[in-house]
Design a protein around this nucleic acid. Structure first.
Lengths: 365, 365
DNA sequence: ACCAAGAATTTGAACGATCAAACAAAATCG
DNA sequence: CGATTTTGTTTGATCGTTCAAATTCTTGGT
């Protein structure tokens, strides 16, 4: 099994020329049916596979997407990125695209990597996550006219009308609205909200979703809404603290909507600790933790996010970068709608104790 | 900025030949110092960077490692893989290696991908995670003589004496031992254990570590140890249930060592729910959740795991695969020692409530 | 000063694929 | 039926780099 077969070997075996073999692979429609079968047989026979690097060299396409792995695993929500990465890799494979990882320290380090990967023709495009306002990375990519798409809208600009670059995002307003609506449907009349203490689009729109739904269905006014909500840094202890504070109010909330599963987990524990274990708490991101502790949570359609990202870069099919000059009918962005996953908040207490060892795989490592 | 400069352009600019430029980059020691400076200046001037695909085509090395992204995000511990991936990518970058992802359904699908990536010369080696006993994937790779390392020892074989393939693992015996020892140092006299209900090496060795330490320091015999331990499927609810059962014993444990943070989190909640919130609980894997809820946990040195994996594949430096015929002095495997990260179990309750919004980034998405 | 041995550099070929243009075969048409 | 188009296939060149062998330049010994 010494040498791998080349297009030359296949050509010889099938009694045709190199180029015909190449055509069978790349332009099947222009080759005559019976030569087609002959060549395909030879390919199967020899177990031929095109040499990726040779192809890349000639075509000047790497068929590879670069994604940066964030330096810090972002707390519980870190797995969000993990799941997105998985979805992206899977969707990419369907188009014969590959995902290449890189890491970097800070925006400048990341830009260095952009430059390196671009010049080495290692990647055709980047997918950026956790973008911030006035992101230097998107500025660099735009300036150098290199294809990319962001997961998260470019906050501050005219995102919907005339976005400065392609983006995909999940509608946080809708997510929070659904969560709130679900709590109300469950009988709540004062839905509290624990959100993020920053000015990001994400933070603002999720709170707005909760506020809008509370105002509309429960008739609460701005002052009441302010009383019922807190903005904190993301994290379990912060959620715990905030929930304790809200539950200590003269007129405490009878349900809690949180901007993350971390906050929600903290809130759940807080509620239990003050004897209100039955309090409905709804989280965000639908992380494994939410599933594990039976927490209702807003699920982001990461498969769709990944698919949309690829569509914005490569069109509805194929693996060739589409020009950034989109038609007016085909917008540069995708705003997707999340779904609420309802769970029984009492699941934890209900589980039956099992003394004898139970078989099963636990997916360690 | 039309065309990217090639080695040819640099050569012309520096007044030397192509090959000399190539030598400056690949064999610096054989080029005369002053031509060296001249060429380097030209490289900097033109902003030249070698074209990765062209190089790969010629050298027949891809300088890329393939890693499969597991289909399911493995519950809370999923982030373990995430962190490992990050460490691996970072370590790889230092050797000018890249990490390429792929996904697959089941072992057969993964083997198909192996074959595809190998034949396309996309990767030089694979890093496998979550290996199982008699893994068909390692069998295939061995049979086709393709370089790889596993994270996790090949259970069942003579791992230490004459391993059938290179592996890196973290010593679970030591980890559980440390956790147990820490609990005892904190005053515990009956340390309970909640572990995994399967026959994996991981499950066995962690329990053995706890058992050994309990026997030695506390003088407990086998029967008592059996009473104090349970084996369940990994998960928060299971941990909760198991902890409730252990705490309901006539002579309940005064501390709990768990084989995962998921189990530990469930156990913590169980303890709190029966008014034993002060009970020391120690988890495993040091996931973000453990950090968030202030849970002591055994930390796996993923940086070292990644570094060791690369060393086994590529030697102590460089990016060329080393032959699998290792010298006797240089074993085919690395067994690393984890570290216990001690945290205050009361952290959650202690956090002060903060009414006013606090600035800070919460790393959403 | 001469020649051999070593060091530094250059030249032609090759890696494996696709592109562009040239060519041959088949189909269409007046 | 010959001229013209359409369709299918082949040939030479090329992508940017490194390898292998050939060449030139240094150095040192006698």
């Amino acid at each position: 099994m010494g040498q791998l077969p080349t297009v030359e070997d296949v050509a010889r075996a099938a009694g045709v020329s190199r180029q015909t073999v190449s055509n069978v692979l790349n332009s099947p429609q222009i080759v005559k049916p019976d030569t087609m079968t002959r060549v395909k047989a030879a390919i199967a026979e020899l177990g031929y596979r095109p040499h990726a690097s040779a192809r890349r060299l000639r075509t000047r396409k790497s068929s590879t997407i670069g994604v940066r792995l964030d330096p810090m695993t972002n707390g519980i929500s870190g797995s969000l990125l993990d799941r997105f990465l998985h979805a992206l890799t899977e969707q990419a494979a369907e188009r014969d695209l590959r995902v290449m990882l890189f890491t970097a320290q800070g925006p400048d380090g990341e830009i260095d990597e952009f430059s390196r990967l671009r010049d080495g023709a290692d990647v055709d495009a980047f997918v950026l996550t956790s973008t911030v306002h006035d992101d230097p990375r998107t500025a660099w990519l735009l300036e150098h006219d290199f294809p990319f798409v962001t997961f998260g809208r470019p906050s501050g600009a005219d995102d919907l009308g005339d976005p400065i670059h392609p983006w995909v995002d999940v509608d946080g307003f809708s997510g929070a609205q659904q969560a709130t609506s679900h709590a109300i449907a469950g009988g709540a009349r004062r839905v509290g909200y624990i959100g993020f203490a920053d000015e990001s689009t994400t933070a603002l729109e999720r709170r707005a979703g909760w506020a809008a739904e509370s105002a509309q269905q429960l008739g609460l006014d701005g002052a009441e809404l302010d009383t019922l909500s807190l903005a904190v840094v993301d994290g379990v202890p912060q959620g715990n603290a905030a929930a304790l504070q809200l539950l200590g109010l003269p007129a405490p909330p009878d349900a809690l909507v949180c901007a993350s599963d971390s906050l929600a987990l903290g809130a759940m524990m807080a509620a239990a600790s003050v004897g209100r274990g039955e309090l409905p708490v709804i989280g965000y991101d639908n992380t494994p933790v939410a599933d594990a502790v039976g927490l209702s949570s807003v699920d982001q359609p990461l498969d769709l996010v990944a698919q949309s990202a690829l569509e914005l870069l490569f069109g509805t099919s194929g693996s060739t970068i589409v020009s950034r000059v989109h038609s007016a009918t085909d917008p540069l962005y995708r705003l997707l709608t999340p779904t609420l996953v309802a769970r029984k908040p009492t699941q934890l207490a209900r589980v039956e104790t099992s003394g004898s060892p139970v078989a099963g795989n636990h997916n360690e490592r």
